[in-house]
Computed example of a mutant assay.
Amino acid sequence: MKDMKKLQLALLAGLLVLSGFTIQAKAAPQNHPGKLAYKHVEYLTEGIGPRVAGTENEGKARTYIAEELNKLGFKADVQPFSYTRKNVTKNSANIVALKDSKKTTKQIIVGAHYDSAKIGKGADDNASSVGVILETAKKLQHRNLPYDVKFIFFGAEEEGLQGSSYYANNMKNAEIKNTIAMINLDSLLAGDNIYVYGSADQGWIRDLALNIAGKKKIPLETNPGLNPEYPAGTTGDWSDHAPFKKAGIPIAYLEATNWEIGDLDGYTQTIEHGAIWHTENDNLTFLNTAFPGRPQERLYQFTTILTELLADMKHEVK
Rank of each mutant, 00 (worst) to 15 (best):
A275Y: 00
P33A: 03
H278Y: 12
L12A: 12
K86P: 00
H241V: 01
E175M: 09
L11A: 12
I119D: 06
K60T: 01
Q269G: 02
I261P: 07
K102V: 01
P231I: 00
I212M: 06
A252P: 13
V88C: 00
R206E: 13
Y167C: 01
P50H: 10
V149L: 06
K172G: 15
G54H: 11
G236V: 07
F74P: 08
P50I: 00
A209Y: 11
N31L: 05
A256Y: 03
S92A: 13
A53F: 12
W259E: 04
I176V: 15
K71T: 12
I212A: 09
S199K: 06
A232D: 02
L36D: 11
E58D: 08
T22S: 11
L185D: 12
Y197P: 00
L98I: 13
K138P: 00
K75N: 09
I180R: 13
L16Q: 07
L98K: 15
Y300G: 00
A290I: 07
L11H: 05
N223V: 00
W259A: 03
F153K: 12
Y38D: 01
K217Y: 11
K217A: 12
Q141F: 02
A275L: 03
I194M: 14
K106A: 11
E68N: 14
A213I: 02
P219S: 08
N169W: 01
I261S: 08
L161H: 13
G34F: 11
G54W: 09
I180S: 11
G274S: 09
A66P: 10
R206Y: 02
K318D: 05
I109V: 15
K103M: 06
T304A: 03
A252K: 10
L69V: 11
G198H: 10
L220M: 04
N283K: 13
R143H: 15
K5N: 05
D237M: 05
I65S: 14
A61M: 06
I48A: 05
Q8A: 13
N184D: 14
L161A: 06
K172Y: 03
T270Q: 12
V52N: 08
K39H: 14
G198D: 05
E280V: 02
A252V: 03
